[in-house]
Amino acid sequence: MKKIFLILSVLSVQFFLSQKKANPKAESKNNPIENTKASLSLSKEEIDLYNGKFLKFIAALKISDRAAMEALLSEEAKAKVTDVVYKKLSEDIDTNKTFKIIKTAYKPTIEGDHFPMIQYKYSDDKAVEPKVIITAVFETDGKILGIRPYKVTK
């Protein structure tokens, strides 16, 4: 009898101390995608809105109009962008060239948010893999969160 009680107590302790695996979900206030299986592409209207804001920013960058550039930036970006960043952007982006959209999507963040993103290349770059890719990330209202030029090296 003592052996049966000992075996049952060992098994019951293991059962009661076992843990269930939790499946946490990140809650996001900026997440425009309610269903994770939803399409991650942007609509034509969104692309037109974001592309227009990007082109306005590039035009302001070309003439070094800081007030116009800041009007297009989100509050987060305004807090982080300095004169050095504007100077670096004007050096890395050739504002005299035209741009071609190569990819549109929602960019996920660590917090679980998804922001609209458009990737550009120079329209005169005919290579399969472009030499320079410019990624622009936006808030849903069209304000620019960030612009990052990236030179592809092999």
Rank of each mutant, 00 (worst) to 15 (best):
M1N: 13
K3I: 09
I4Y: 09
I7N: 01
S9M: 13
L11C: 11
S12I: 14
V13C: 12
V13K: 00
F15E: 02
F16P: 06
L17A: 12
S18R: 11
S18W: 13
Q19A: 12
Q19E: 13
K20H: 15
A22P: 04
P24Q: 02
K25E: 10
K25I: 15
N31Q: 06
N31C: 09
I33P: 01
N35G: 06
N35M: 11
T36M: 15
K37A: 09
K37H: 13
S39R: 05
S41M: 09
S41Q: 14
K44D: 12
E46Y: 03
I47H: 02
N51H: 15
G52K: 14
G52S: 15
G52F: 05
K53N: 15
A59Y: 02
A59G: 07
A59C: 02
A60F: 03
L61T: 06
I63H: 00
S64E: 14
R66A: 12
R66K: 15
M69P: 00
A71I: 12
A71P: 02
L73N: 03
S74E: 00
S74F: 00
E75D: 11
E76T: 07
E76H: 03
A77Y: 07
K78H: 04
K78S: 06
K78G: 04
A79N: 12
K80C: 04
V84A: 12
V85H: 11
V85M: 09
Y86W: 15
K88I: 10
S90H: 08
S90N: 10
S90W: 06
E91Y: 14
D92Y: 10
D94N: 15
K97I: 01
T98F: 07
F99H: 04
I102F: 05
K103L: 07
T104C: 06
A105R: 12
Y106L: 11
T109F: 00
T109E: 01
E111M: 14
E111S: 12
G112R: 02
F115Y: 10
M117F: 05
M117G: 03
I118A: 04
Q119P: 03
Q119H: 01
K121T: 07
Y122I: 06
D125P: 01
K126Q: 07
K126H: 04
P130F: 00
P130S: 01
I134M: 00
T135A: 04
A136T: 15
V137I: 15
F138W: 05
E139G: 00
T140P: 09
D141C: 06
L145T: 10
P149W: 11
T153C: 01
